[in-house]
């Protein structure tokens, strides 16, 4: 029986490798058909801000990479509503489509639903 995996991505996008590493795990899991979910929390929600410019730092374009999630079969995308609110990020018009904002109660239920959780 394949185990399901939830990745909690809580690092901001441009200052370190954490956000990209979390995404790489998710994409690898998706490529192998693993039931996988991705939850953006804390500074990880900054990854969802629209119209960011990776080129300004000559970095790989994480925003473009995130668009590939659907192609890799990763459709369970969540964001912590508290983290979004705290940072003034509007849940409408996020850089990634179909991300569901969740209350703390709903985050707990999502964590319960997966067999394994990795927080990065």
């Amino acid at each position: 029986m394949t185990k399901s995996l939830l990745i909690i991505s809580r690092q901001a996008p441009w200052s370190g490798p954490g956000a990209k590493e979390a995404l790489d795990i998710v994409l690898a899991g998706g490529a192998f058909d693993l039931p996988i979910g991705l939850l953006f929390m804390d500074d990880g929600t900054f990854q969802l801000v629209p119209e960011q410019n990776a080129a300004a730092l000559q970095q790989k374009n994480l925003t473009a990479n995130l668009q590939a999630l659907a192609m890799f079969g990763v459709e369970d995308l969540y964001a912590c509503r508290h983290s979004l609110n705290e940072r003034g990020i509007s849940p409408a018009g996020l850089a990634v489509a179909d991300v569901q904002p969740l209350s703390a109660e709903e985050v707990r239920a999502v964590i319960d639903r997966y067999d394994q959780v990795i927080t990065l």
């Binding site: 809580r10 929390m41 804390d42 912590c80 703390a104 985050v107 707990r108």
Partner: peptide
């Protein structure tokens, strides 16, 4: 760091 605060928020 925000880890503990975030964790407490969703601890069942």
């Amino acid at each position: 760091d925000t880890r503990l605060g975030s964790c407490l928020r969703l601890l069942g």
